[in-house]
Deep mutational scan, measured.
Amino acid sequence: SEYETMLTEIMSMGYERERVVAALRASYNNPHRAVEYLLTGIPG
């Protein structure tokens, strides 16, 4: 799925699956924002 592709691409940058899933959830599946959250911390 498109979601799995995003997940895999972000994980390939060296992040753990659960952190990527949390970041995508926080960003409403916006991959650019999710990466930003992984770099700066997930808000909330």
Rank of each mutant, 00 (worst) to 15 (best):
S1K: 12
S1F: 11
S1Y: 12
S1G: 10
S1V: 12
S1M: 13
S1Q: 12
S1T: 12
S1C: 14
S1H: 11
E2F: 11
E2P: 10
E2V: 11
E2C: 14
E2A: 13
Y3A: 03
Y3P: 02
Y3K: 03
E4W: 10
E4S: 07
E4D: 09
E4N: 08
E4Y: 11
E4R: 07
T5K: 15
T5M: 14
T5Q: 14
T5L: 14
T5V: 12
T5S: 12
T5E: 12
M6H: 06
M6V: 07
M6G: 02
M6Y: 07
M6E: 02
M6F: 08
M6P: 01
L7H: 00
L7E: 01
L7P: 00
L7W: 03
L7A: 02
L7M: 06
L7V: 15
T8A: 15
T8E: 13
T8S: 12
T8P: 02
E9C: 15
E9K: 13
E9H: 13
E9Q: 14
E9N: 12
E9S: 11
E9P: 01
E9F: 13
E9M: 15
E9A: 14
I10Q: 00
I10W: 03
I10D: 00
I10A: 01
I10N: 00
I10E: 00
I10S: 00
I10Y: 04
M11H: 02
M11A: 04
M11D: 00
M11L: 05
M11I: 08
S12D: 09
S12T: 07
S12G: 12
S12Q: 11
S12M: 11
S12L: 12
S12F: 06
M13Q: 06
M13K: 06
M13L: 13
M13W: 05
M13Y: 07
M13T: 02
G14P: 01
G14K: 01
G14Q: 02
G14A: 02
Y15C: 02
Y15N: 02
Y15S: 01
Y15T: 01
Y15Q: 01
Y15G: 01
Y15D: 01
E16P: 14
E16C: 14
E16A: 08
E16F: 06
E16M: 05
E16S: 12
R17L: 08
R17F: 09
R17N: 03
R17A: 05
R17D: 02
R17Q: 06
R17I: 08
E18V: 07
E18K: 07
E18D: 11
E18T: 08
E18G: 08
R19S: 12
R19I: 12
R19C: 15
R19H: 13
R19Y: 09
V20W: 03
V20P: 00
V20T: 03
V20K: 00
V20F: 06
V20G: 02
V20E: 00
V20M: 02
V20Q: 01
V21F: 03
V21C: 08
V21L: 09
V21E: 13
V21M: 09
V21D: 05
A22L: 08
A22S: 07
A22D: 10
A22G: 05
A22K: 08
A22M: 06
A22H: 07
A23W: 04
A23C: 03
A23M: 03
A23Q: 01
A23D: 00
A23I: 04
A23R: 01
L24D: 00
L24W: 01
L24V: 03
L24G: 00
R25D: 10
R25S: 09
R25W: 07
R25Y: 09
R25M: 10
A26I: 10
A26H: 11
A26P: 01
A26N: 06
A26D: 07
A26Y: 08
S27N: 07
S27Q: 04
S27D: 02
S27C: 12
S27T: 10
S27P: 00
S27I: 06
Y28G: 15
Y28S: 15
Y28P: 03
Y28W: 08
Y28I: 08
Y28N: 15
Y28A: 15
Y28L: 15
N29V: 04
N29H: 06
N29I: 03
N30P: 01
N30M: 05
N30A: 04
N30K: 04
N30I: 06
P31I: 13
P31W: 13
P31G: 06
P31M: 15
P31C: 12
H32F: 12
H32K: 14
H32V: 15
H32A: 15
H32T: 14
H32L: 14
H32D: 14
H32N: 11
R33S: 07
R33I: 15
R33W: 13
R33M: 15
R33Q: 13
R33P: 02
R33G: 07
R33C: 13
R33L: 15
R33K: 15
A34I: 04
A34L: 04
A34E: 01
A34K: 00
A34P: 01
A34V: 03
A34Q: 00
V35A: 05
V35Y: 07
V35T: 04
V35P: 01
V35M: 13
V35E: 03
V35D: 01
E36K: 07
E36H: 13
Y37F: 12
Y37M: 13
Y37E: 03
Y37A: 05
L38A: 01
L38K: 00
L38V: 02
L39H: 07
L39Q: 13
L39Y: 05
L39T: 10
T40D: 09
T40Y: 15
T40K: 11
T40P: 03
T40W: 14
G41K: 09
G41R: 07
G41T: 10
G41A: 09
G41V: 10
G41M: 10
G41C: 10
G41F: 12
G41Q: 11
I42L: 11
I42Q: 08
I42D: 08
I42M: 11
I42C: 13
I42H: 08
I42Y: 11
P43N: 10
P43W: 11
P43Y: 09
P43M: 12
P43F: 11
P43V: 11
G44Q: 13
G44F: 11
G44R: 10
G44H: 12
G44Y: 09
G44L: 13
G44K: 12
G44V: 13
G44E: 13
G44T: 13
G44N: 12
